[in-house]
Nucleic acid binder design. Structure first.
Length: 194
DNA sequence: GGGCCGATTGTT
DNA sequence: ACAATCGGCCCG
């Protein structure tokens, strides 16, 4: 089929241009270990027309099962179900009647956890709602494997620059557990949300 | 079914 | 400081 040929072409391009997925091994770590390690990693998005977007992650937040600010805190629901599954998959939720937010699921199968991706080094993708709007990410992408470059959304290798440091602050926009310093960002990066 | 609230954003 | 805007979830 013609479309399969196109598909294969972009697969080859994705790997040959250095967009190889990061190791699934990273996701064997705890949520709080993974979150800062996602800073500098590239988020990749293949649009319907084949265009590939990439942007470094510059701001994240950690959420865990025993955390009252986490959507999984009150157990398994249709929305939180994906967070209780295996790590490395996308958790996308709809909020405030108009925005979507993207997370990477963490913790082993049976335990919930996630890292909210709050900003990319990409124009218009600063802030979790703006990121998903700019990159056309919605709930149809809930459950995608973020460690597979055949997904329309995946994580590829990337790291902090030698002069970059990590800033650790309270999470934004929550009304409980505001004392936890679970927000991680690249200090001074202009794409970090305000 | 009803009602409240929200891991946001843009405007007043 | 507040409005926009609607799905998710708890309650009854």
């Amino acid at each position: 089929m013609a479309w399969r040929g196109v598909y294969t072409f972009y697969m080859a391009k994705a790997t040959s241009t250095g967009l190889k997925p990061i190791s699934r091994r990273l996701f064997r770590n705890s949520t709080l270990e993974i979150a800062p390690k996602l800073l500098g990693v590239n988020l990749c998005r293949r649009l319907d027309d084949g265009t590939i977007l990439t942007g470094r992650i510059v701001e994240v937040e950690a959420y865990t099962q025993d955390d009252p600010a986490c959507h999984a805190f009150r157990g398994i629901t249709p929305r939180s179900k994906i967070m209780y599954g295996p790590p490395g998959f996308a958790y996308v939720y709809f909020i405030y009647g108009m925005y979507h937010c993207l997370n990477a699921v963490t913790e082993p199968d049976g335990t919930a956890g996630a890292v909210l991706i709050r900003a990319l080094e990409y124009d218009g993708a600063n802030g979790p709602g703006r990121l998903c709007r700019q990159w056309q990410i919605d709930k149809s992408m809930n459950g995608l494997d973020l460690l597979d470059s055949e997904s329309p959304l995946w994580l590829s290798q990337g790291s902090l620059k030698s002069d970059e440091t990590i800033e650790i602050t309270p999470r934004i926009g929550i009304s409980v557990a505001t004392d936890r310093l679970w927000r991680f960002s690249i200090r001074g990066n202009k794409f970090v949300s305000k």
